[in-house]
Design a protein around this nucleic acid. Sequence first.
DNA 1: TTGAAAGCGCTACCAC
DNA 2: GTGGTAGCGCTTTCAA
Lengths: 345, 345
Amino acid sequence: MTQTPPRPPAGPPARRPVPTSADVARLAGVSRATVSYVLNDTSAVRISEPTRRRVREAAEELGYVPHAAARSLRAGRTRIVLLPTAPVPVGPLYGHFLNELQWALRRLGYTVVQYASMGLDGDEAARAWAELRPVAVVTFGAVELTPHGVDVLKRSGARAVITLGPRPVEGAHSVPLDQRGVGGCAGVHLVERGYRRIGVVMPEEAGLELFSGPRLEGVRHAVTGSGADVVALPLACAEEAAGALAARWPGLGLDAVFAYNDEYAMLLMRALLDAGVSVPGDTAVMGADDLLLGRLTRPRLSTVRIDMETGQHLAGLVDRVVRDPDRTPEGGDLMAARAVHREST
Amino acid sequence: MTQTPPRPPAGPPARRPVPTSADVARLAGVSRATVSYVLNDTSAVRISEPTRRRVREAAEELGYVPHAAARSLRAGRTRIVLLPTAPVPVGPLYGHFLNELQWALRRLGYTVVQYASMGLDGDEAARAWAELRPVAVVTFGAVELTPHGVDVLKRSGARAVITLGPRPVEGAHSVPLDQRGVGGCAGVHLVERGYRRIGVVMPEEAGLELFSGPRLEGVRHAVTGSGADVVALPLACAEEAAGALAARWPGLGLDAVFAYNDEYAMLLMRALLDAGVSVPGDTAVMGADDLLLGRLTRPRLSTVRIDMETGQHLAGLVDRVVRDPDRTPEGGDLMAARAVHREST
DNA sequence: TTGAAAGCGCTACCAC
DNA sequence: GTGGTAGCGCTTTCAA
């Protein structure tokens, strides 16, 4: 029996070695198998109470923590649900939704891991994710997932690849987040109130096209047949940009503008007011997201309120797909939009 | 030689098995060792170019992706840097900082994993994190880490446990985020302008005490000796709450208020104006964070601008601690605050 | 009720 | 240059 602990091959000064289940077994005077049974409450096997206690105490004393990698290597699958993180600022709505989702997934026994993916293209990212062998991947459209990327993930053992976003990806379960609906709401709201020359702000910030494009489309679609015009207005999120746009406002001949979200809306509305354009008299302004701060402007900002299904709902869907990847349980729309009329339209 | 693939023990319908390095070796007609050498560009060993090509092609064809768990099990350590995610909304400042940090860490060869920790208490969380055997943990004060939790992590092999936040934790490297300095800036700014009865908004939302407490202290400390009073004002982030506070404003006899951040400041300022309190005539209002939207109010909001050292800076610190956990390289302050005077003070 | 041992995928040491 | 192989920590079947 080798008593000499096999020292790590030099390098950094030998640190106190990490305790393993073998150490626990040794201390408790039982076999590794027994340790595993006790610590995992394996029901298929009966272990005497005194033994259980000894094992538990030994584990406690050593500060033993099971090694997730070893466990999942043995098990052949992980319980990791990987959520690629978005480099784009997504606002409080997604933030809340994300928290709910993570909480619900953990209750279902999954390990939720957000993987920092900024600066990786779709296929690099998919490979990097696949190395962790997640059982599921839920992406919010932050990284452009390709059909090939989906395939890589599936072949690495991912049972569910779910994309939340404006457009589906082949091979993945797509849960549409109906951005067109958001634009649609705004379009209908404005047309109903008689506006006919409608501007739509398109943020120039990278990463937002995935959202702004469909919102624009939604407005376009909503106004067809009403005789209204829709004009895209690129805008950076900065005061000077808004000022410049406001300066040439009269020449644009617009009587309303849907500003992508409340932040852009507040920015633009301020610039318009400062330039002498009255709101909603000369031009109506509409935002989206129903931020608290939007209620504080004068006039109060009309907006599109987006209700998202609870994260719990999506967590359930993930779980169902993991359990039976072949059945396609359509979750329906996770997002519902409705216009909130205040004073700016 | 067993040719029968050992089918998974029933359960879900047998899926196409995930390719391993052995499969690549078989297809390329080489040994697993050679595959490993080629795919890892092991410099200690020379492999002929034709062999390399064959291996690469085989890997490509099979869609082989190395198994991170197996690799780190073998290596005895991971390259995971674990960042517990905060359930509290932390604002665009931290968001940006976080992105930079992640990017920089990845460039240094680490795998950045954000671990969803909401609803776990400090010690549960530490255990859960330790299962992944991260080489480093960087926490932003979202989860209350205890000395015991730090010990669990260290014993599980974490070489760096770094807390960013208002107060240090025993055993961890603490990088102070000087929230007191933020309050201090505001205090000095207000006192210099002659204000003597200063309110400080304390958000009622859970999880923010860690920030608001030190900010309040900072104000208190900054005004000592000036003869100014400081009064804490609990406030929920909602219009009604702000309205109620504004209604009893005259009775409070305050000539200035530091509102924790720009959002609370805008909320309160609106309520004050609506209640007929002039700003800054009757009462000065100061925020913090220098949000874009704060510049849009009338009067424009004075604020405390917080500059954070680049994430790259912190990434370097993490890397240094990982390489030499015993030396204590103090990184200095990561945060610098300064007052920005606009119109509301 | 408990123990022995195989083997998950991978890398690194040593032979050839 | 390349292959054989031990062993990382864990679970689970089989035997005692």
